[in-house]
């Protein structure tokens, strides 16, 4: 019986994406339980072979590098084909991907094709009676489900960002790197990559920020994000938004925090005019300290906050900003 654990590692431009480290960490743990090897597959354009070495240092025993100009930009068709070829080569018992625009786009197809089980958006993974078991928040985070694979064959799972600790870097660790040939049948192409347009974050990036100031429906209008921007400038914070604010057209989609937006884990998360719907808290939940400012004392956000102020943010935020500026000068 197959015992190996395969992970789909990812690149972020010229380095390994952080999720690759999260996958290596949990993959290493599961491989320890199955008694198999940890194998990683990495796809991309030039430089992929070189980056593969980094995965060995993160705990992979073997890395399959698929380097091709055709893989520089993402298309579902080719990424699925190449990733599936790696799954076929390794015949793992467990295949893990991260919940990214690539991982969650490729894994369901491979699982369906191979008659495997598939658990999406997992926050915990373990082995129970020889089967892969997962914890998955459902109903937008309002309920927690525990699921277990029913199949003897492959179990596929997709991991939620920031739910698993990063792997420890062990320089000098040795492992095998092999390359996977990428064949493109010209007649079979149904998709082609055109370009990626990156939206540059103004100031601090949400994912990297130590402090996040986020606004929701309670702000009442796009122009009122200026209150948050002024505070963010003083605190060197990133600005986020709830889905309600994005849907209203007050904030760009790239700064949405929540189940289908970004998951952030800053030291301080300041929620302004955000009721605290579960879907939002999925994204803000990993924050170490939550501060809420809301006119409704019954808003669910206060159940998750360390400190709260009940009242109009138009009065609270300017005074808070001024005091913070004063305190941070000293």
């Amino acid at each position: 019986m197959a015992k190996d654990v395969l992970i789909l590692a990812e690149r972020a431009e010229d380095r390994l994406a952080l999720v690759s480290s999260e996958l290596c960490g949990v993959g290493r743990k599961l491989a320890g339980e199955t008694g198999g090897a940890l194998v990683a597959v990495l796809l991309g354009g030039a430089g992929t072979q070189e980056l593969a070495k980094g995965l060995i240092a993160l705990g992979a025993d073997k890395v399959i590098a698929a380097e091709s100009n055709h893989l520089k930009g993402y298309t579902n068709t080719l990424y699925t084909q190449v990733t599936d070829a790696a799954v076929g080569q390794v015949s793992p018992s467990i295949f893990l991907v991260a919940n990214t625009s690539i991982g969650r786009d490729v894994a369901p197809r491979i699982a369906f094709r191979r008659g495997a089980s598939y658990a999406y958006d997992c926050t915990e993974l373990s082995i129970e009676n020889g089967r892969l078991a997962a914890v998955r928040p459902v109903f937008g985070g309002s309920a927690i489900s525990h699921v277990r694979s029913r199949t003897e064959a492959l179990a596929v799972a997709c991991t939620r960002a920031k739910a698993f600790p990063l792997a420890e870097v062990q320089q000098g660790r040795s492992g095998e790197i092999t390359s996977l040939e990428v064949k493109v049948e010209s007649g079979a192409v149904k998709m082609s990559f055109v370009e990626t347009k990156y939206v540059e974050a103004e100031g601090v990036r949400l994912e990297d920020a130590e402090i996040v100031v986020s606004g929701g429906r309670g702000l009442g209008g796009a122009e009122n994000f200026s209150y948050l921007q002024a505070l963010a400038k003083v605190l060197k914070a990133a600005v986020g938004a709830s889905r309600a604010a994005v849907d209203a057209g007050w904030a760009p989609t790239q700064i949405q925090v929540g189940q289908t937006g970004k998951i952030v884990g800053p030291n301080l998360y300041i929620a302004v005019g955000i009721s605290g719907a579960m879907q939002h808290m999925v994204g803000a939940g990993p924050s170490k300290n939550i501060v809420a400012i809301n006119t409704d004392p019954e808003a669910p956000i206060f159940q998750r906050a360390k400190y709260g102020v009940v009242g109009d943010y138009r009065k609270v935020i300017p005074a808070f900003t001024k005091k913070c500026e004063e305190l941070l000068k000293n």
Binding site: G141, S145, V147, K315
Partner: peptide, 28 residues
């Protein structure tokens, strides 16, 4: 191919401390 083995509501035990003042500015 997946079986459900458990389902429950998450429990949040956190206690929010409300910060107050004579005015909202002072609370801030």
């Amino acid at each position: 191919t997946l079986e459900l083995t458990k389902l429950y509501k998450p429990v949040f035990t956190g206690q929010c401390e409300f910060i107050t003042g004579e005015t909202l500015e002072e609370a801030a």
